[in-house]
Design a protein around this nucleic acid. Structure first.
Length: 819
RNA sequence: GCCCGAGUGGUGGAAUUGGUAGACGCGCGGGACUCAAAAUCCCGUGGGGGCAACCCCGUGAGAGUUCGAGUCUCUCCUCGGGCACCA
C-alpha cells in the first residue's frame, strides 16, 4: 500500500526501525529504573558473561533474549524491572587468552567489553547500563577483598596445607571442579597432579547441611537442584571405633554398620596420619615406599585409570568392635583421605571394591547378609543389597538390613564404640590461585604478628600492572617475583611484612556481583542496606546449567555467610532460578575447537534483531534449547510483515460485531500469558501466529468492504509481541496512534467468558476409536451427548446390532461408546 | 557402574498432563498474479488402500494397566547431561 504523503511503499524496514528505537530508548531513558524509588521492584538477573575475544555467539544471545523477554513481560505487568548487566573479566580464561596473544589482559579486556556491549545493545536487551559492573574494576574488587576479610574475621577463611590439583600446563592449582576425569578442563590430555601447598580455603563444608536443606525451599529448575544436592552428597551412616595396638582407637565411617560382623580387615588411606603409627617396625620401609608412591601419582592413574587394586599390609591388627576378633590393617590407595575419616572397615562379602581387594590379597570374606527369600546362604558374592537379612551376626541374625543399621549402631554406641554419623561429599572451597589476573588476597605475613589481614581502610589491594605475568614452575604467583609490590610494612607492628602473593578464584568475583548491581553508586560500602532490602533477593535468575554446581553453590554460600554476619537479611540469594537450554550446532555444543560457532552479527544485520530474537525463541523450548539452523528465519520475518500490514489496517472505529476475532483474542491472551510465564516462548509465538492468521481472515473480508481491523484487536497483539520484538512493537504502537512507549501499556487481561467457544466439536468414539465428530452446544448432559452421538450415521455403522456395554462422557470433549 | 533427561512426519517442534497425534513454522507439490522471475496470496502435504464415502497402520522396541496410552507401569535399545574407588 503506497504511503499517502510520499507515494512510497511503506514496508517494514528493521534497520531503520531498530536504529530509531535504540536512539529513543537512550534519549527517554526507557530502560532505566530509579533504583531508590521503585514502587514495585522486580530484580531480573541474567548470568553475566565473561567477555571473550570472540564476542557473543548465538547460544549466548539465545540465553540473554530469553531472560530479557521475561523482564519485559514483568514490566508490562506493571513491575519496576531492574535488569542489570556486567562483565566477569578476571580469571584464568582472560589470562590464558592474554598469554596466548602476548598482550597484557588489562589492555585486552576493554576492547572485548566494548564489543560485547555493542552486541548486547544491538540485540535490543533492556539492560540498565547505568549499573554496569566489571569485576576487574578496583572499585569492585575492593569489595571482593572486603568479603574475604569478613570471612577471615569470622574464621571461615583458613589457610591449610592440602593436596591440591596441579595442572602442569596451567601451572596453577585447579579447583576440583576444573578437573575432568583427572584431566585439566582447559588442557584435555594433560593429567592433573597432586601437590601439597598452603592454600586459603573457605569453610563451605560447615554449611553443607543448610545448603542442602534450603534447596527444598527454592523455586529452581529441578535439574539444578538435583545437581546441587548430589554435589553436597549427604550420606547417613555410622562412625565405628576399631581399637589398635597403638592404644589409639581408629574411627571408620560406614554407611553399612549392619555389616560390621563381616568386616574382616581395615584399610587406611596412604595419607592417613595413623598409618605410620600402626605400622609394625619390620614393615616400615615397605609401607613408607607404598605411601610415597601413592601420594605422588597423578589423579588419572590413582582415581580414574588403573582400577587394579594395590595395597600393603602394615603388619598389625585392630579389634573389630562387634566380633572382638583381630583384623589386619592395610594401607591402600582405593581409600581416599578426603572422605569420611580416611579409613574404612572392609566388608568384602558386601562391597565390590573390598571384594576385589580381598580376592587379590587372600583376605577373609565373610557373608553377613543373605537374600530375604532363600534359606540357604549360597549365591554369588559380593552381595550388595538393602533388601537382605542379617546372618552370622550373633543376636542380630534374621534382622533386615535397615533395622540392623539402627540396632547395631545403638548396640555399639552403648559400649562407646560407635555413633550415628552423617557425611557430605562437599569439599572446602580452595580460593587460592597462583596466578596474576585476579584480586590479590588481602593478607600480609609478618614475622612477629603472623597472618595479618589488610585493614579495610587500606582496600583495595591493587593488582600491580606487571609485564611478566606468565606463571612459572615455582608454584608461586607471578606477583611473588615483585618485591617492590609484596614488601610492605606490617599493618599491626610496622615491621617488615610480606603480602600474600596469590590471587583469589574467579568464582569469588562472581559469587556476589548480584549484590553489587543495585548499589553501584555506593563507594563506601559493597552494598547499601536500603537498596538490598528493596531489590534482593533476586526475583528471577536465569543462566546455564554449566554453573549449576559451582557458581550457584558459591553464591549461596557467600550470601549465607554475609547473612550470618548481619550484612544481609536473607540467606538465599536467588528466589527463582531457571536453567536455560543450550543451542547446539549439528548436535554438538558450539565451541571454537569444534569450529561450529555461529555468531549473531550477520543475522542481525540481515534480518534485524527482532526477527532474530523471535527466531531463536521459536527454535525450541527455552528451557531445553535446540539445534541451530537458519532455514526457518524467513518464516518469522513473514510473520512480522503480516503484523505490520494488520497494524496498517487497524482503525479505532472498526465495527466489532463479529465475535470470532474477540474470542480468538482472549484465547490467545490466556495461552500467551501462561506460556510466557512458564518460559515456553516457542508455543507463545505459535499462539500469536495463530491469532494473526485469524485476524488476517477478518482483515481480508473487511478490506473488501473498506472496513479495518479494530484497534481493540490489534493493540493487545502489539503488546504481547513487545517482549519478543521490542523495537518492532514500539514502532507499531506509535503507528497505532500512541505517543509514549508500548512499555507504558499494560499486559492485556483475558476474559474467560469471551474466550469460550459457543459451539464445540464433540469427539465420538466407539471402543476408543474415533468414529465421528458432532457440533454441539457447551455443557451437554451425558444422556444428551450419547443421544447425539448415536444419531450419527458413522457411529451407527459400528454400533448397529451390538449391545452397548457402557458409555463414557468427558464434558465438552468426547463420548466413548463401548459395545 | 550410579543418578537425571530425551527419543513423535521430509524437517524444527506441538499435544490443556490419561481424552481428536502431528498445533505453529520450515521444506515440498499444485494453483493465482507476472512477458518471465522474485515477492505475495490461495489450496494440499504422516504412511498404505480405495473412483468415492471411508478403511487399515502409525509417537525408539516389546509387554502390561485402561472404555481409551505419545502421556502411566515393567523390560530392553539409542542419544544427551551429571556423578564416580565417596566406603
Amino acid at each position: 500500500m503506497p504511503d499517502m504523503k510520499t507515494g512510497q511503499i511503506d514496508s517494514y524496514d528493521p534497520g531503520a526501525v531498530e536504529e530509531k528505537w535504540r536512539r529513543r530508548w537512550a534519549e527517554r531513558r526507557t530502560n532505566t529504573v530509579d533504583v531508590s524509588s521503585a514502587a514495585r521492584p522486580y530484580y531480573n538477573l541474567m548470568m553475566f558473561p565473561y567477555p571473550s575475544a570472540e564476542g557473543l555467539h548465538v547460544g549466548n544471545v539465545f540465553a540473554f533474549v530469553g531472560s530479557d523477554i521475561h523482564g519485559r513481560f514483568r514490566r508490562l505487568q506493571g513491575w519496576d524491572v531492574f535488569e542489570p548487566i556486567g562483565f566477569d573479566a578476571f580469571g584464568i580464561h582472560s589470562e590464558n587468552y592474554a598469554l596466548r596473544v602476548n598482550t597484557h589482559p588489562a589492555r585486552l579486556i576493554p576492547a572485548n567489553i566494548a564489543r560485547f556491549r555493542e552486541q548486547l545493545k544491538r540485540t535490543g536487551l533492556m539492560f540498565d547500563w547505568d549499573h554496569e559492573v566489571q569485576t576487574t574494576d578496583p572499585a569492585y574488587y575492593r569489595w571482593t577483598q572486603w568479603i574475604f576479610l569478613q570471612l577471615f574475621h569470622a574464621g571461615q577463611a583458613v589457610k591449610k596445607g592440602a593436596p591440591v590439583n596441579w595442572c602442569p600446563e596451567c601451572k596453577t592449582v585447579l579447583a576440583n571442579e576444573q578437573v575432568e576425569d583427572g584431566y585439566c578442563e582447559r588442557h584435555p590430555g594433560v593429567r592433573v597432579h597432586q601437590k601439597f601447598l598452603e592454600q586459603w580455603f573457605f569453610t563451605i563444608t560447615k554449611h553443607a547441611a543448610r545448603l542442602l536443606d534450603n534447596l527444598k525451599t527454592l523455586d529452581w529448575s529441578d535439574s539444578t537442584r538435583l545437581m546441587q544436592s548430589n554435589w553436597i552428597g549427604r550420606s547417613e551412616g555410622a562412625e565405628l571405633l576399631f581399637e589398635t595396638p597403638s592404644g589409639r582407637p581408629l574411627p571408620v565411617y560406614t554407611t553399612r554398620p549392619d555389616t560390621v560382623f563381616g568386616a574382616t580387615y581395615l584399610v587406611l588411606a596412604p595419607e592417613h596420619p595413623m598409618a605410620d603409627v600402626v605400622t609394625a617396625t619390620e614393615k616400615r620401609n615397605e609401607v613408607g615406599r607404598y605411601r610415597r608412591g601413592a601420594m605422588q601419582k597423578d589423579i588419572v592413574s590413582r582415581k580414574v585409570g588403573e582400577k587394579e587394586k594395590t595395597g600393603v599390609f602394615t603388619g598389625t591388627y585392630a579389634r573389630n568392635p562387634a566380633t572382638g576378633e583381630s583384623v589386619p590393617i592395610w594401607v591402600a590407595d582405593y581409600v581416599l583421605m578426603e572422605y569420611g575419616t580416611g579409613a574404612i572397615m572392609a566388608v568384602p562379602a558386601h562391597d565390590e571394591r573390598d571384594f576385589e581387594f580381598a580376592e587379590k590379597f587372600g583376605l577373609d570374606i565373610r557373608r553377613v547378609v543373605k537374600p530375604r527369600a532363600s534359606e540357604d546362604e549360597t549365591g554369588s558374592l559380593p552381595f550388595i543389597s538393602w533388601d537382605g537379612v542379617l546372618t552370622n551376626s550373633a543376636q542380630f541374625d534374621g534382622m533386615g538390613c535397615a533395622d540392623g543399621v539402627k540396632a547395631i549402631t545403638n548396640w555399639l554406641e552403648e559400649s562407646g564404640l560407635g555413633k550415628k554419623e552423617v557425611q557430605y561429599r562437599l569439599h572446602d572451597w580452595c580460593i587460592s590461585r597462583q596466578r596474576y589476573w585476579g584480586p590479590p588476597i588481602p593478607i600480609i605475613y609478618c614475622d612477629s604478628c603472623g597472618t595479618v589481614p589488610v585493614p579495610e581502610e587500606d582496600l583495595p589491594v591493587l593488582l600491580p600492572e606487571i609485564d611478566d605475568f606468565k606463571p612459572d614452575e615455582s608454584g608461586l604467583s607471578p606477583l611473588a617475583r615483585h618485591k617492590e609490590w609484596y614488601e610492605v610494612p606490617c599493618p599491626r607492628c610496622g615491621g617488615d611484612g610480606r603480602r600474600e602473593t596469590d590471587v583469589s578464584d574467579t568464582f569469588l568475583d562472581s559469587g556476589w556481583y548480584f549484590l553489587r548491581y543495585p548499589s553501584t553508586t555506593c563507594d563506601d560500602r559493597p552494598f547499601d542496606a536500603e537498596m538490598s532490602r528493596r531489590w534482593l533477593p533476586v526475583d528471577s535468575y536465569i543462566g546455564g546449567n554449566e554453573h549449576a554446581v559451582l557458581h550457584l553453590m558459591y553464591s549461596r554460600f557467600i550470601t549465607m555467610v554475609l547473612h550470618d554476619l548481619g550484612h544481609l537479611d536473607f540467606e538465599e540469594p536467588f528466589t527463582r532460578f531457571r536453567a536455560h537450554g543450550t543451542i547446539v550446532k549439528d548436535g554438538a555444543k558450539m565451541s571454537k575447537s569444534r569450529g561450529n560457532v555461529i555468531v549473531p552479527d550477520d543475522y542481525i544485520s540481515r534480518w534485524g534483531a527482532d526477527t532474530f530474537r523471535m527466531y531463536l525463541m521459536f527454535l525450541g523450548p527455552y528451557l531445553e534449547g535446540g539445534d541451530f539452523r537458519d532455514e526457518g528465519i524467513a518464516g518469522i520475518r513473514r510473520f512480522l510483515d503480516k503484523v505490520w500490514s494488520l497494524v496498517r489496517l487497524s482503525t479505532p472505529e472498526a465495527r466489532s460485531d463479529d465475535k470470532s476475532g474477540e474470542r480468538k483474542l482472549h484465547q490467545t491472551i490466556r495461552k500467551v500469558t501462561d506460556d510466557v510465564e512458564g518460559l515456553r516462548y516457542n508455543t507463545a509465538i505459535a499462539a500469536l501466529m495463530e491469532y494473526v492468521n485469524v485476524l488476517r481472515g477478518l482483515g481480508s473480508r473487511r478490506a473488501e468492504s473498506a472496513e479495518g481491523i479494530s484497534n481493540s484487536l490489534s493493540e493487545p497483539l502489539v503488546i504481547m509481541l513487545a517482549p519478543f520484538a521490542p523495537h518492532f512493537a514500539e514502532e507499531c504502537w506509535e503507528r497505532l496512534g500512541h505517543d509514549g512507549s508500548v512499555y507504558q501499556a499494560n499486559w492485556p487481561g483475558f476474559d474467560a467468558e469471551l474466550a469460550l467457544e459457543e459451539e464445540i466439536e464433540l469427539v465420538v468414539q466407539v471402543n476408543g476409536r474415533v468414529r465421528g465428530r458432532v457440533k454441539v452446544a457447551r455443557g451437554l448432559s451425558q444422556a444428551e451427548a450419547v443421544g447425539r452421538a448415536l444419531a450419527e450415521e458413522a457411529v451407527l455403522r459400528f454400533t448397529e446390532g451390538k449391545e452397548i456395554q457402557k458409555t463414557i462422557y468427558v464434558e465438552d470433549r468426547l463420548v466413548n461408546i463401548v459395545v
